[in-house]
Amino acid sequence: MSIPSDRQSEVPVTTVEHLADDAVIVDIREPNEWAAGHAPNAIHIPLGELPSRLDELPDTDDTVGIVCRSGGRSSRAVAWLTQQGFDVANVEGGMRAWQSAGKPLEGEHGDAFVL
Rank of each mutant, 00 (worst) to 15 (best):
G102D: 07
L50K: 01
W34G: 02
S75R: 15
D21T: 08
P46D: 08
V91Q: 02
A42P: 11
I66N: 01
R29A: 06
W98R: 06
I25F: 09
P40Y: 13
I25W: 08
K103D: 01
S100P: 00
E56T: 13
S74W: 03
Q83R: 12
F113D: 15
G72K: 13
Q8D: 00
G107I: 04
I3F: 05
R76H: 11
R53H: 14
D62M: 02
V16R: 02
V16T: 15
A23N: 09
P104E: 08
R73E: 04
T82K: 09
G85K: 13
D111Y: 02
Q83M: 07
R69H: 15
A35Q: 14
N41F: 01
H44P: 09
A42Q: 05
G107N: 08
D22N: 15
E30W: 04
H44T: 04
T60V: 14
V88Y: 11
Q83N: 14
V88I: 01
S70I: 12
R69I: 00
A89S: 13
K103W: 03
P46C: 04
K103Q: 00
A36M: 14
P40S: 10
L105Y: 08
G71A: 05
A101K: 03
G102V: 09
D59I: 07
G102K: 10
G85F: 12
E56F: 08
T63R: 11
I66C: 03
I3T: 14
G65E: 05
L19F: 03
E56C: 00
